[in-house]
Nucleic acid binder design. Structure first.
Lengths: 297, 297
DNA sequence: TATCAATTTCAGAAGAATTGAAGTGAGCGC
DNA sequence: GCGCTCACTTCAATTCTTCTGAAATTGATA
């Protein structure tokens, strides 16, 4: 069986024109190189050099030099691609994230993640928690970032951080003058605008209030606009409102249980690609810190 | 260093879905295959299979299967090209030959030579001895077939056959009634047409006759036409006149030294390509027999 | 023709791959 | 839930391959 290593030795000899230099170049003795060449000639079935001074090739030698060079080049390139992929320097990464994280947390995270991986291709989908789970489950996204839910079936949840809900209201609202965390009871009689995130709050008092609400808005920008326009108040995770909005105030809630847990969503059965695994580790290490900083904790 | 052989084992395992079958396929034990795989994973830097049941690949495994298959395919193809070339099943062969051999001898020779080498590309140049030597010397032709000459410099001559000269005259010429080989003295007073081949005859008697000749024709067809038209007689090698011409007769010459030696012309310093070497051996073995048959010896 | 350097040859040494047996662990039927 | 089975892995011994260093050979050069 002809080995690629033998071709490598042959090409080196053909290029240096003598065995001694080639032997130095490949880190063997001249006798080892000589034997390799002899064996190669036997296996191919013809002489590669015109004389045993290795400075001129036969027609067969020329052909083998061309083909051999190409094989070596192509093999080495393949191996380097394999290694780069294994070490997550290349590959593609599809992330599905809830908007609050996509907007407030992922930009610096991705920026730093890609700094050492300039060749990695990233796709980011900005969708709600339920769809995040669906995209991960179907394999469209490699990894998801979403609120916790009863971990059903194929996807697994790993918590990243907790995010307390706050009350969002016009900054001239009566509640702004309370100077203490808002209790659910403070909201009796107020008009509440529901949204996708706040529906996750389990507190019975909140559920009662929420049941009376007539408006539900899923898009955060629209929601804030509604509040600003004086249509009512709403409850949102802190991170969602991280960027201060003109004319609206974010008030702390007294109920410490009113918080969502945000974490990574991954398929349980399918192992992540190297890039996804690297991103997972990076996210677990870096996201909590970024969130803490953003929320001013 | 990653070896192509390791990729070969990996691809086999990935394709059979388990180690035992793959081990049978590559002719190793399962433990050898397992160790090869482990080593490959270490060198690449990541796992290739999802579990230690080898029936599902990781993303890295899939990449390596694709790249590995391609590398193996390409390497094997290169090796087979090298072998085919070494065994002269492929390659190109450029032959320069004097017309008499090109016309009368080479067709059946080449036909049989190529029968077992259908992929070999052949070029045939039909030119005079001096040009044959020049083409071989310059490397344009791999091998030449020409009359002998003082073997000068870079080319070497290997005799193939001898070819006696004959006298060519109109079939109603007086000489046709001699009923014995023609002597040089029989030609006194006759009009002789010189040609490229007959100029090689060394006999002093002939040289005298030839010196008196006023016409020289190099092309055989024209030469025969001249003879047929009654312009004179000429001296040509038997093989050149092998095909009988209407209205002209080819008479034996008494002078046994009036013959040319035809042989192979090759470069002395440059080794022949495998196809050229194969043709050389074939020609040395087959051409004398064909010539003997053609000349009815 | 003698000399010198490059190459080849050879036997032993070093290193790598392979084997067979024992061990591990996941999946499956009882 | 227990133990069986099958597939894979691990380990130490063995075998096979490749390498080395010394000596012999070869070819070029003076």
């Amino acid at each position: 069986m002809i080995k690629l290593e033998a071709l490598r030795v042959f090409v080196t000899v053909a290029e240096s024109g003598n065995i001694k230099d080639a032997a130095d170049a490949v880190g063997r003795t001249a006798s080892a190189v000589s034997m390799t060449l002899k064996q190669l000639e036997d296996e191919i079935g013809g002489p590669l050099f015109q004389t045993d001074r290795k400075n001129s090739l036969t027609a067969l030698g020329n052909l083998m030099l061309d083909l051999g060079r190409e094989q070596i080049r192509s093999f080495d390139k393949s191996v380097s691609i394999m290694r780069a992929f294994a070490h997550s320097r290349i590959g593609s990464l599809s992330i599905a994230s809830v908007p609050s994280v996509a907007t407030n947390v992922l930009p610096p995270i991705l920026q730093r993640f890609l700094q050492t991986r300039p060749q990695v291709q990233v796709e980011l989908f900005d969708i709600d928690s339920a769809q995040v789970r669906r995209m991960v489950e179907s394999g469209v996204a490699d990894i998801g970032i979403a609120g916790e839910s009863r971990t059903g079936g194929a996807v697994e949840f790993t918590p990243l951080f907790s995010d307390r809900f706050k009350l969002l209201c016009k900054d001239d609202h009566d509640l702004c003058r309370l100077e203490r965390p808002v209790k659910w009871s403070d909201l009796n009689g107020a008009t509440l605008i529901r949204n996708g995130a706040s529906d996750r709050i389990e507190a019975a008092d909140y559920k009662q209030l929420s049941a009376l609400s007539l408006i539900t808005v899923y898009n955060v920008t629209s929601l804030v606009a509604m509040v600003k326009a004086g249509l009512g108040l709403t409850i949102l995770p802190s991170l969602t409102m991280h960027d201060a909005h003109e004319g609206v105030a974010a008030l702390d809630l007294a109920d410490a249980t009113a918080s969502r847990r945000v974490g990574l969503v991954e398929r349980r059965d399918v192992p992540p690609s190297p890039v996804a695994a690297a991103f997972r580790a990076f996210a677990l290490k870096e996201i909590p810190a970024i969130v803490a900083e953003r929320l001013g904790t």
